[in-house]
Amino acid sequence: MTTHRLSIPLQEDDVRQLRISDVVYLDGTVHTGRALVYEHVLQGQNQPLLDLANESNVQMHGAPAGVEDAPGEYRLSSIQATASFRYWKYVPDYVERFGIRAIIGKGGMDKWVYEDVFAKTGTVFLTTVGYGIAALYGRAVKRVIDVHWKEELGLPEAMWVLDVENFGPFIVDGDCTGASLAAEHVDSVNKNFAREYAKLPEYVLKRIGEIDHSLANEVIVGKPAGDGD
């Protein structure tokens, strides 16, 4: 569990040295993006308005708490990340095309993304801590440099380009060896769930108007068939 302070743009060596559970703080330019940004860029064929690989090769899955006080004048109060694994359709392509070295998010990505994509591209997944320490992260944002595509995507979903200083702490959830911290911890607690489930009978009926669950099903969907080979 080593602590690192790194400058953006991140170099390949910077990220290949990181291991799961290391702590990272960042300086430089970070940009945000959620589903609408990915669709705008990857499906809508809109080129990012800055050179991501050389200026901002760290993307955060987050929509900040922020307002536009006057045209082009933004005030950001807090920021954190949203659940990242739901962007599995977009992340591999985006990371490869734009030379992204780190994704900042929540909950990690499914392990195959780290193994099949990040190990090759030299990218890590940095998880936000506690998933709700947005005031601390907000403090580290020195300036909103710009907000791209706010008319098309709306202010929260637009691409915010942020100047950050000592932005963190983040924990390495996925490293370039393909390891996944969250997956390790899920494996560790599964035996405790199995112990509790063993004490309980099955429901009388399978389902009546609700979603059925079992320990085998995580919210994340798993590797799509025939992909990534």
């Binding site: 708490a65 807090s78 954190q80 949203t82 709700g132 947005a134 005031a135 907000g138």
Partner: peptide
């Protein structure tokens, strides 16, 4: 700082 505890 009178910032939102959570951005969401």
């Amino acid at each position: 700082d009178q910032r939102p505890v959570c951005a969401d």
